[in-house]
Design a protein around this nucleic acid. Structure first.
Length: 424
RNA sequence: GGAGAGAUGGGUGAGUGGCUGAAACUAACGGUUUGCUAAACCGUCGUACCUCACAAGGGUACCGGGGGUUCGAAUCCCCCUCUCUCCGCCA
């Protein structure tokens, strides 16, 4: 959520930059600024009435104490009408605030100045790429066939236990998951991230805090009896740690990482996108989060991108980093880099990480503020997060790219974790 | 799940209808003094909104959340949430 102040002070810029996200902001911004003006007027009126009421109440107290009962009774009479007026104003105020908020949450984050114009994924800009594309033999097969051949991931068994999109990892497949998780967490720790193990279910407030609610409600599994949501990403519990917090800027950067399973309903997905590990309802991911001073958040974004790049490099996967264009960016992001790895048998680039700077968009909802030393004022912090990394598509690429006639080779860096060097 | 107790500012904790946005102590920060890993003393020390220059000043709201009684509520009443203790159940 953008702040009204920012919109007010940068109206033309906001309209112009939101056009890059294919969002026409002109009209809604006028409505927002109008509602805000109205809101201030109403509050001002009501404050004045309250002040009068408070004064009368004080007076009545004194009159009673000095035995002037008659005068006190007279003073009381005056309050009735003021209270009526105030009541109506409070109703108006609440309604106006609600309207205002409803409009405000419809406005996406303003894309950073470097975000390219564009409609869809076609218009994303490849920033850089690395790693060599493997030369597979002609009998190379996609990962879902390999999973079956070596009996390491069982999709049918998952169907039996739960349903589509809930695979069962077996034997070396299971150990590979564990290895990747530990590898990612260890790398995160080396880079200065503090490890957390958060709850996998969150309450409504947390859902609102990071923006999954209200609009992405149907993407989350909802335990209605207790009104809890299964997390779609560790970003939700991890970032909400700092909901309603005021930190001293000397604590920046705050760096947190967590491994969690992630649960996504993925309503509306179909076709080759959901084949095998490409898209699941439950998957494992290590997430990194940073909270940073606004003046340094873009340096931090670069640092996070470099961290993720280091991971795919160490896994020896062919990758490319793309800067998302306005049309392909998420609602909440100001700048996003996607990481894609090449799955050689499917001959597809698979998105494995998305690293974003949300600037103060998320912090505004979270009420995550900071204070500079010696300054009484609070400001909104900047939040950033990224996957480092999501497992399934990494596994898909590892299996497909490293297949040989003798089995699937494990990248060097993972062997200390898997304790085996080939899946056969 | 049953019974009871409780929820106050960074922490401890006072306050049961007006003089309380809230004592006291403590932590933190700034300063004075003395000087050796410190003490004493003084000062500052919640958030949001309105007015307004995001200054000073003024106003309003907030003592877990919501509603009510009253001229006036941290204080009384109702509902909810959470925490603690005991019992039950249990990895």
């Amino acid at each position: 959520m953008l702040t009204i102040k920012f919109i007010d002070e940068n109206k033309d810029y906001v309209i112009q930059r939101l056009a890059v996200k294919r969002f026409n902001a002109k009209e809604i911004i006028d409505v927002i600024l109008g509602l805000d003006k109205q809101r201030r007027q109403i509050q001002n009126q009501n404050d004045n009435i309250q002040a009068t009421l408070n004064a009368i109440a004080k007076e009545v107290g004194v009159l009673y104490k000095t035995g002037k009962v008659k005068e006190a009774e007279e003073a009381k009479v005056k309050t009735a009408q003021l209270k009526e007026e105030s009541k109506q104003l409070v109703i108006d105020l609440e309604e106006t605030e609600l309207n205002l908020k409803n409009k405000l949450v419809q406005v996406p984050n303003v894309p950073h100045i470097t975000v390219p114009d564009g409609k869809s994924a076609e218009d994303n800009v490849i920033v850089r790429s690395g790693g060599a594309l493997p030369n597979l033999t002609s009998d190379a097969v996609p990962h879902w066939d390999l999973a079956k051949k070596y009996d390491i991931i069982d999709f049918e068994l998952g169907n039996k236990l739960t349903g589509a999109g809930f695979p069962v990892y077996k034997g070396k497949g299971s150990k590979l998951q564990r290895a990747l998780i530990n590898f990612f967490l260890d790398e995160g720790e080396k880079a200065g991230y503090k490890e957390y193990m958060p709850p996998l279910m969150v309450n409504e407030e947390s859902g609102y805090g990071t923006g999954q609610l209200p609009d992405k409600e149907d993407q989350m599994y909802h335990a209605t009896l207790d009104n809890l949501y299964l997390i779609p990403t560790a970003e939700v519990p991890l970032t909400n740690i700092w909901r309603d917090a005021i930190v001293n800027s000397s604590e920046f950067p705050i760096k947190a990482t967590a491994y969690t399973p992630c649960f996504r309903r993925e309503a509306g997905s179909y076709g080759k996108d959901v084949r095998g590990l490409n898209r699941l309802h439950q998957f494992d991911k290590v997430e990194i989060v940073q909270i940073q001073h606004p003046s340094k958040s873009y340096e931090t974004l670069e640092e996070m991108v470099n961290h993720v790049e280091g991971l795919v490099k160490k896994l020896e996967l062919p990758y490319r980093i793309v800067r998302l264009c306005g049309g392909d960016m998420s609602f909440t992001s100001a700048l996003t880099y996607d990481f894609e790895v090449y799955a050689a048998a499917q001959q597809r680039w698979l998105e494995v990480s998305s690293v974003s700077n949300f600037e103060s968009f998320q912090a505004n909802r979270l009420k995550l503020r900071y204070k500079d030393d010696g300054d009484k004022r609070t400001n909104l912090a900047h939040t950033l997060n990224g996957s480092a990394l999501a497992l399934p598509r990494i596994v898909a690429a590892l299996l497909e790219n490293n297949q040989t006639t003798n089995g699937i080779n494990i990248p060097e860096v993972l062997i200390p974790y898997t304790k085996f060097n080939v899946i056969d």
